[in-house]
Amino acid sequence: MFRTARADRTRRSSFRLRAAAGAAAGAFVLAGCSSGGDGPGEAAGGVPVVEKGKLTTCTHLPYPPFQFERDGKVVGFDVALVDLVAARLKVQQKILDTPFENFKTGAFLNSGECDLAAAGMTITEERLKNVDFSVPYFDATQAVLATRKSGVTSLADLKAKGKKLGAQSGTTGESYAEAQGFDPVAFESSDAVLNGLRTGQVDAVVIDYPVVQGWLKDPKNAAEFAVGQNIETGEQYGFSVKKGNGKLLAAIDKAITDAKADGTYKKLYEQWIGPLPQAAR
Protein backbone atom coordinates (compact mmCIF):
# COMPACT_ATOMS: atom_id res chain seq x y z
CA MET A 1 0.00 0.00 0.00
CA PHE A 2 1.71 3.20 -1.13
CA ARG A 3 1.30 6.93 -0.69
CA THR A 4 -2.29 7.03 -1.93
CA ALA A 5 -3.14 4.56 0.83
CA ARG A 6 -3.39 7.44 3.31
CA ALA A 7 -7.02 7.94 2.26
CA ASP A 8 -7.74 4.27 2.88
CA ARG A 9 -6.75 4.43 6.51
CA THR A 10 -10.07 5.90 7.55
CA ARG A 11 -11.65 2.59 6.64
CA ARG A 12 -9.45 0.85 9.18
CA SER A 13 -11.07 2.83 11.98
CA SER A 14 -13.64 0.03 12.08
CA PHE A 15 -11.10 -1.99 14.01
CA ARG A 16 -10.96 -5.67 14.83
CA LEU A 17 -11.49 -6.89 18.34
CA ARG A 18 -9.66 -9.79 19.88
CA ALA A 19 -10.58 -11.04 23.32
CA ALA A 20 -8.13 -12.71 25.62
CA ALA A 21 -8.64 -16.39 26.23
CA GLY A 22 -6.18 -16.23 29.12
CA ALA A 23 -3.77 -13.56 30.31
CA ALA A 24 -0.95 -15.84 31.33
CA ALA A 25 -1.08 -17.87 28.13
CA GLY A 26 -1.39 -14.79 25.90
CA ALA A 27 -4.13 -16.53 23.90
CA PHE A 28 -6.52 -14.38 21.90
CA VAL A 29 -9.49 -15.17 19.64
CA LEU A 30 -11.51 -13.12 17.18
CA ALA A 31 -14.49 -11.71 19.03
CA GLY A 32 -16.30 -9.07 16.96
CA CYS A 33 -16.31 -5.35 16.22
CA SER A 34 -17.17 -3.53 19.45
CA SER A 35 -15.92 -3.62 23.01
CA GLY A 36 -19.21 -4.86 24.54
CA GLY A 37 -18.60 -6.51 27.90
CA ASP A 38 -19.97 -5.58 31.28
CA GLY A 39 -18.97 -1.92 31.30
CA PRO A 40 -16.32 -0.22 33.43
CA GLY A 41 -14.94 -1.86 36.53
CA GLU A 42 -12.04 -1.99 38.93
CA ALA A 43 -9.07 -4.33 38.87
CA ALA A 44 -6.96 -5.31 41.87
CA GLY A 45 -5.66 -2.35 43.83
CA GLY A 46 -8.55 -0.15 42.75
CA VAL A 47 -7.18 0.31 39.23
CA PRO A 48 -10.02 1.48 36.94
CA VAL A 49 -10.55 -0.52 33.74
CA VAL A 50 -12.86 0.22 30.82
CA GLU A 51 -14.34 -3.27 30.93
CA LYS A 52 -14.88 -5.31 34.06
CA GLY A 53 -12.47 -8.22 34.36
CA LYS A 54 -10.39 -7.06 31.37
CA LEU A 55 -7.30 -5.01 30.68
CA THR A 56 -8.03 -3.64 27.22
CA THR A 57 -4.98 -2.95 25.07
CA CYS A 58 -4.95 -0.91 21.88
CA THR A 59 -2.33 -2.05 19.39
CA HIS A 60 -1.70 -2.04 15.65
CA LEU A 61 -1.20 -5.37 13.91
CA PRO A 62 1.03 -6.75 12.69
CA TYR A 63 4.31 -5.52 14.16
CA PRO A 64 6.46 -8.56 14.85
CA PRO A 65 8.13 -9.40 17.15
CA PHE A 66 6.13 -7.04 19.40
CA GLN A 67 2.61 -8.03 18.40
CA PHE A 68 1.41 -10.25 15.58
CA GLU A 69 -0.93 -13.15 14.87
CA ARG A 70 0.28 -16.74 15.01
CA ASP A 71 -1.97 -19.77 14.82
CA GLY A 72 -5.02 -17.56 15.40
CA LYS A 73 -3.59 -15.89 18.49
CA VAL A 74 -2.06 -12.46 19.05
CA VAL A 75 1.40 -12.96 20.51
CA GLY A 76 4.69 -11.10 20.87
CA PHE A 77 6.96 -9.27 23.27
CA ASP A 78 4.52 -6.44 24.03
CA VAL A 79 1.68 -8.92 24.51
CA ALA A 80 3.72 -10.97 26.97
CA LEU A 81 4.71 -7.92 29.01
CA VAL A 82 1.14 -6.62 29.21
CA ASP A 83 0.05 -10.11 30.28
CA LEU A 84 2.28 -9.58 33.34
CA VAL A 85 0.38 -6.37 34.12
CA ALA A 86 -2.97 -8.12 33.66
CA ALA A 87 -1.93 -10.96 35.97
CA ARG A 88 -0.90 -8.42 38.62
CA LEU A 89 -4.31 -6.76 38.32
CA LYS A 90 -6.12 -10.14 38.38
CA VAL A 91 -7.79 -9.52 35.01
CA GLN A 92 -7.42 -10.84 31.46
CA GLN A 93 -5.83 -8.90 28.64
CA LYS A 94 -8.02 -8.07 25.62
CA ILE A 95 -6.56 -6.62 22.43
CA LEU A 96 -8.07 -4.10 20.00
CA ASP A 97 -6.38 -3.63 16.62
CA THR A 98 -6.55 0.12 15.89
CA PRO A 99 -4.95 2.61 13.45
CA PHE A 100 -1.44 3.59 14.55
CA GLU A 101 -1.98 7.32 14.11
CA ASN A 102 -4.41 7.30 17.05
CA PHE A 103 -1.55 6.47 19.41
CA LYS A 104 -0.11 9.95 18.89
CA THR A 105 -3.29 11.61 20.11
CA GLY A 106 -4.39 9.05 22.67
CA ALA A 107 -7.82 9.04 20.99
CA PHE A 108 -8.84 5.51 22.00
CA LEU A 109 -7.58 6.03 25.53
CA ASN A 110 -9.51 9.28 25.91
CA SER A 111 -12.70 7.80 24.45
CA GLY A 112 -12.64 4.89 26.89
CA GLU A 113 -12.10 2.20 24.24
CA CYS A 114 -8.81 1.05 25.78
CA ASP A 115 -6.94 1.13 29.07
CA LEU A 116 -3.47 1.29 27.55
CA ALA A 117 -1.68 1.28 24.20
CA ALA A 118 1.12 -1.16 23.39
CA ALA A 119 2.46 -1.02 19.85
CA GLY A 120 6.24 -0.89 19.82
CA MET A 121 5.77 2.84 20.42
CA THR A 122 8.62 5.29 20.95
CA ILE A 123 8.34 7.76 23.81
CA THR A 124 8.50 11.25 22.28
CA GLU A 125 7.89 14.77 23.54
CA GLU A 126 5.08 15.19 21.02
CA ARG A 127 3.26 12.08 22.25
CA LEU A 128 3.83 13.02 25.90
CA LYS A 129 1.60 16.03 25.31
CA ASN A 130 -1.36 13.71 24.83
CA VAL A 131 -0.64 10.56 26.88
CA ASP A 132 1.39 9.38 29.87
CA PHE A 133 4.10 6.77 29.26
CA SER A 134 5.37 3.93 31.39
CA VAL A 135 9.02 3.49 32.24
CA PRO A 136 10.90 2.46 29.07
CA TYR A 137 10.85 -1.25 28.36
CA PHE A 138 12.88 -1.45 25.14
CA ASP A 139 15.82 0.43 23.58
CA ALA A 140 15.18 0.74 19.85
CA THR A 141 17.22 1.54 16.76
CA GLN A 142 16.21 2.10 13.16
CA ALA A 143 17.54 0.15 10.19
CA VAL A 144 17.68 0.64 6.44
CA LEU A 145 16.65 -2.51 4.61
CA ALA A 146 17.26 -2.50 0.87
CA THR A 147 16.85 -4.87 -2.03
CA ARG A 148 20.16 -6.50 -2.85
CA LYS A 149 19.85 -5.52 -6.52
CA SER A 150 19.56 -1.82 -5.59
CA GLY A 151 23.14 -1.66 -4.35
CA VAL A 152 21.99 0.63 -1.53
CA THR A 153 23.95 0.46 1.73
CA SER A 154 22.88 3.71 3.45
CA LEU A 155 20.43 6.60 3.26
CA ALA A 156 23.16 8.70 1.67
CA ASP A 157 23.60 5.99 -0.95
CA LEU A 158 19.85 5.95 -1.54
CA LYS A 159 19.78 9.70 -2.09
CA ALA A 160 22.81 9.68 -4.40
CA LYS A 161 21.35 6.90 -6.55
CA GLY A 162 17.91 8.55 -6.71
CA LYS A 163 16.21 5.46 -5.30
CA LYS A 164 12.81 5.36 -3.58
CA LEU A 165 12.50 5.07 0.20
CA GLY A 166 9.53 3.71 2.16
CA ALA A 167 8.47 3.83 5.82
CA GLN A 168 5.49 2.97 7.97
CA SER A 169 3.13 5.92 8.27
CA GLY A 170 3.05 7.73 11.61
CA THR A 171 6.23 6.12 12.94
CA THR A 172 9.51 7.60 14.11
CA GLY A 173 11.13 5.88 11.12
CA GLU A 174 9.02 8.02 8.81
CA SER A 175 9.85 11.13 10.86
CA TYR A 176 13.57 10.33 10.77
CA ALA A 177 13.50 9.86 6.99
CA GLU A 178 11.71 13.19 6.54
CA ALA A 179 14.24 14.91 8.79
CA GLN A 180 16.98 13.62 6.49
CA GLY A 181 15.34 15.30 3.51
CA PHE A 182 13.39 12.34 2.12
CA ASP A 183 9.74 12.22 1.12
CA PRO A 184 9.20 8.53 1.94
CA VAL A 185 6.40 6.48 0.45
CA ALA A 186 4.07 5.90 3.42
CA PHE A 187 2.73 2.41 4.12
CA GLU A 188 -0.05 1.74 6.61
CA SER A 189 1.46 -1.34 8.29
CA SER A 190 4.74 -3.20 8.61
CA ASP A 191 3.37 -5.94 6.35
CA ALA A 192 2.63 -3.31 3.71
CA VAL A 193 6.17 -1.92 4.11
CA LEU A 194 7.68 -5.32 3.37
CA ASN A 195 5.29 -5.90 0.48
CA GLY A 196 6.21 -2.52 -1.00
CA LEU A 197 9.86 -3.50 -0.90
CA ARG A 198 9.16 -6.92 -2.36
CA THR A 199 7.03 -5.60 -5.24
CA GLY A 200 9.42 -2.80 -6.20
CA GLN A 201 7.29 0.12 -5.06
CA VAL A 202 10.38 1.23 -3.12
CA ASP A 203 14.05 0.26 -3.21
CA ALA A 204 14.67 0.54 0.54
CA VAL A 205 12.77 1.14 3.77
CA VAL A 206 13.59 2.56 7.18
CA ILE A 207 11.93 0.77 10.10
CA ASP A 208 12.73 -0.51 13.59
CA TYR A 209 15.63 -2.94 13.58
CA PRO A 210 13.87 -5.76 15.52
CA VAL A 211 11.23 -5.83 12.80
CA VAL A 212 13.96 -6.19 10.18
CA GLN A 213 15.55 -8.98 12.23
CA GLY A 214 12.26 -10.84 12.19
CA TRP A 215 11.86 -10.47 8.43
CA LEU A 216 15.37 -11.73 7.72
CA LYS A 217 14.74 -14.96 9.62
CA ASP A 218 12.83 -15.99 6.50
CA PRO A 219 15.48 -17.37 4.07
CA LYS A 220 13.55 -15.96 1.11
CA ASN A 221 13.72 -12.44 2.56
CA ALA A 222 17.38 -12.87 3.50
CA ALA A 223 18.20 -13.82 -0.09
CA GLU A 224 16.38 -10.81 -1.51
CA PHE A 225 17.11 -8.04 1.03
CA ALA A 226 20.04 -6.83 3.12
CA VAL A 227 20.48 -4.46 6.06
CA GLY A 228 22.30 -1.45 4.68
CA GLN A 229 22.62 0.73 7.78
CA ASN A 230 21.84 0.65 11.49
CA ILE A 231 20.77 4.03 12.84
CA GLU A 232 21.19 4.84 16.53
CA THR A 233 18.37 7.24 17.32
CA GLY A 234 18.29 6.89 21.12
CA GLU A 235 14.65 5.77 21.02
CA GLN A 236 12.94 3.94 23.86
CA TYR A 237 9.57 2.21 23.79
CA GLY A 238 6.91 2.68 26.43
CA PHE A 239 3.29 1.70 27.05
CA SER A 240 0.90 4.64 27.14
CA VAL A 241 -2.18 5.40 29.24
CA LYS A 242 -4.67 8.23 29.39
CA LYS A 243 -3.19 11.32 31.01
CA GLY A 244 -3.74 11.24 34.75
CA ASN A 245 -4.34 7.48 34.98
CA GLY A 246 -1.73 7.18 37.72
CA LYS A 247 -2.95 3.91 39.24
CA LEU A 248 -2.68 1.95 36.02
CA LEU A 249 0.62 3.61 35.15
CA ALA A 250 2.04 2.59 38.52
CA ALA A 251 0.91 -1.01 37.98
CA ILE A 252 2.56 -1.12 34.54
CA ASP A 253 5.80 0.37 35.87
CA LYS A 254 5.85 -2.11 38.75
CA ALA A 255 5.30 -5.08 36.41
CA ILE A 256 8.17 -3.97 34.16
CA THR A 257 10.65 -3.26 36.96
CA ASP A 258 9.81 -6.50 38.78
CA ALA A 259 10.19 -8.49 35.56
CA LYS A 260 13.63 -7.00 35.02
CA ALA A 261 14.62 -7.76 38.59
CA ASP A 262 13.46 -11.39 38.71
CA GLY A 263 14.66 -12.49 35.26
CA THR A 264 11.24 -12.68 33.60
CA TYR A 265 12.04 -9.75 31.29
CA LYS A 266 15.26 -11.42 30.11
CA LYS A 267 13.41 -14.67 29.42
CA LEU A 268 10.69 -12.93 27.40
CA TYR A 269 13.22 -10.77 25.53
CA GLU A 270 15.19 -13.81 24.46
CA GLN A 271 12.01 -15.67 23.50
CA TRP A 272 10.65 -12.95 21.24
CA ILE A 273 13.62 -10.81 20.19
CA GLY A 274 16.97 -12.48 20.79
CA PRO A 275 19.97 -12.17 23.13
CA LEU A 276 19.48 -9.41 25.68
CA PRO A 277 22.08 -6.64 25.23
CA GLN A 278 24.37 -6.14 28.22
CA ALA A 279 23.22 -2.53 28.60
CA ALA A 280 19.61 -3.65 29.02
CA ARG A 281 20.32 -6.04 31.90
Rank of each mutant, 00 (worst) to 15 (best):
V74K: 10
S134V: 06
D262C: 02
D132S: 11
V29K: 09
L165D: 00
A251W: 04
V144A: 03
V211Q: 00
K267N: 11
G46Y: 06
E224P: 12
P277I: 02
A156G: 15
E270K: 02
E69I: 15
V85N: 04
V241H: 00
T141K: 14
Y265T: 01
G238Q: 03
Y63L: 09
L81D: 01
K161L: 12
V74T: 14
T141V: 11
A179I: 03
F133K: 04
V212Y: 03
D157S: 13
Y176F: 15
I95W: 09
A255R: 01
E224G: 07
V135C: 11
G76H: 06
K161W: 10
H60T: 15
R198M: 02
D132F: 05
P219L: 14
A86H: 03
T57C: 07
L109Y: 08
T98A: 15
A259E: 10
F133V: 13
G46R: 07
I256W: 00
F182I: 09
S35Y: 09
K90F: 06
T57H: 02
F2R: 13
V185A: 03
K161E: 09
V206K: 00
K267W: 04
E224C: 08
A44V: 05
G120F: 11
F138Q: 06
T141R: 13
A44E: 13
I231W: 04
D132I: 08
A27E: 14
S34D: 12
S134F: 03
T57W: 02
E51K: 07
G214N: 12
E235C: 04
E42R: 06
S35R: 14
Y137E: 08
R198T: 06
Q93L: 07
G151W: 14
R11W: 12
V193F: 00
F28I: 10
Q180C: 01
G39E: 01
L249V: 00
Y237N: 09
T172M: 11
R16T: 10
T147M: 08
T153V: 11
F100H: 15
G106C: 02
F66I: 12
W215G: 01
Y63P: 02
T56I: 11
L84A: 12
Y269C: 12
T10D: 14
L96W: 13
T10P: 02
G173M: 02
R6Y: 08
P275R: 03
F225R: 06
V75T: 14
V185G: 01
D115T: 06
V205K: 00
R6S: 07
P219S: 13
Q229D: 04
A261F: 04
D115C: 05
D132Q: 08
F100A: 14
A259R: 12
G39D: 01
G214S: 13
T172S: 08
A186C: 05
N221A: 15
D78A: 10
A87H: 07
W272Y: 15
L145T: 05
R6N: 07
A107E: 14
L128W: 04
S169Y: 06
T122I: 10
K90Y: 06
R127D: 05
W215Y: 15
R9I: 02
N110K: 15
L145A: 08
D203Q: 07
C114P: 01
P275H: 04
L55G: 11
L145Y: 06
Y265Q: 01
P65A: 13
T141F: 06
L61N: 01
L248S: 04
R16K: 06
